[in-house]
Structures are given as C-alpha cells and as structure tokens.
Amino acid sequence: MSEFQVNTMAELMAEGKEVDVLFWVGSAGSFDERAKKITRAFVKILNKANVNFGVLGTEESSSGDAAKRAGNEFLFQMQALMNIEVMNAYNIKKIVTTCPHAYNTIKNEYPSLGGNYTTYHHTEFIVELIKVGKLEVKANLSGKKITFHDPCYLGRGNNIYDKPRQLIEALGVKIIEMKRSKRKSFCCGAGGGQMFKESEKGIEEININRTKEALGLKPDIIATGCPFCNTMMTDGIIAVNEGAAEVFDIAELIAENV
C-alpha cells in the first residue's frame, strides 16, 4: 500500500468501522510546519504496517498540557473533558501519539477526569509493530553518527529511555550519547509553557546550551521524539551554525527506511 491513507473517526463511524488505535496528532503535529512532517512520516509507518487507525481531525483539540503547566488548570480541565467526551463517544481504547506532552497528559492526567485509554508514545508503538512482525526496519543508516535527545516528558516524566534507542539501533546505528542523557538529560527549553514565550533574563538560552552539547559530538543527525524538542534543537542549530547536523524525529528516520 503506497497510498497515503488517513481517515477521521467521523468518516469511519459513518461507514460503521471501528479502529484499533487512535492517532492523536496534537496541536504541533497539526499546525507546526516542521511537526507536520513528523505526523506524515508516522502515518506512512502506520500505513506500511497496515495499522487500522483513525484521527480525530477537526474534532481534536489541544490536550491542555501547555495550559496546565502554565497554571491554567481551568482551561486544562475544560480541554480534557471536551477531548474525553469525543474519544469516549468513539469508544476509543488505545491511543498513539507523536507528542510526549499529549502522551503524558492523556496517559496520566486524563484518567481521573474520566478518560481511560492505553496510551503509547509512537516510539513504543513502532517497537511493538516491529516485534509482532508488522514492520521491518532496514539497517540503512550504518555509518551515520546519531545522537538522541531525550524529551523530558518521555524520559524523566515517564521513564521511557530504551524504546527510542532500540529504534535508532534498528537502523544500524550505534548511538553516540551526550554526557547529559537519559535521566540526566538536559531540557530543550520548551516545556512548561516556555515554547510560547520569551525566556526570562539569563546568560544563555536553554536550547542553545543543549544544541551545543549535541553538536560537540559532531553528529550527522540529532534524533528526538518530540515536536517541541525538534523545534528547539532545529532553532539551536541555526543559531549555533556549526557543522552539518540535522534534527529528525525517530518516526522520520524509520519512515525513510521501511
């Protein structure tokens, strides 16, 4: 199947179809130019593995993560209840998302508000697809130097460190680790609402500090698993302007090599 196939839950319901999993695209994945590429890459993977999935499309709304972490609990809970209502109406049981922020919020913060789903970050989901034989990854990237930036909400937030690394290794690459990696990973600077505002006065931008650390390893690719981290590191590379490294989401690397 080479066609790019995406259906909304509304369309599927009209046809009387159910899905195995809902792909939560997220606001960044829907609107941010760079993140949209990650969304499309992940859909390619889902298509390739013949996953029966749907998206909410225009019925999806911000998960509320940014609002909550910026202190607006009202707005967060309104968003959460709205989304839960929609997803429960479609009888959603399983969710996969390319955004660790939505992942964390839906997985950990929606249940007490009435939203109980089995939630996967896309790296977990892809690992699973490979394990059950639905997806085969070609080790095409051997010889490339890749480092992985742990997104806070995936790593420290939810203790997922190995799944993204397994995928990079499946591409035939031995990861070169930054000194601050895994639980010691240094934030990209976007979390907690920072993505949407200028930072406070300081001596350096957080994303610059992190990008410099990554570039210090002279990698070909800085891989990550979060659209916000992606933006911050991409901006960092432009600002630092050293070497030829590029930032890719793991979904993009996999989609190119299946």
């Binding site: 995406v6 909304t8 695209v25 606001s27 829907s30 949209k36 225009t58 968003q79 993505m195």
Partner: peptide, 17 residues
C-alpha cells in the same frame, strides 16, 4: 483549540500537504 492562532477547521490540513 490550539496554542497557536490557527483556525480549528485547518486541523487536518497536514493530510493533503
């Protein structure tokens, strides 16, 4: 329904880009 100023109706536009 998004932290940026994009119309909610455009949420699925990525599909056709």
């Amino acid at each position: 329904g998004a932290p940026w100023q994009f119309p909610a109706a455009d949420r699925l536009k990525w599909k056709d880009e």
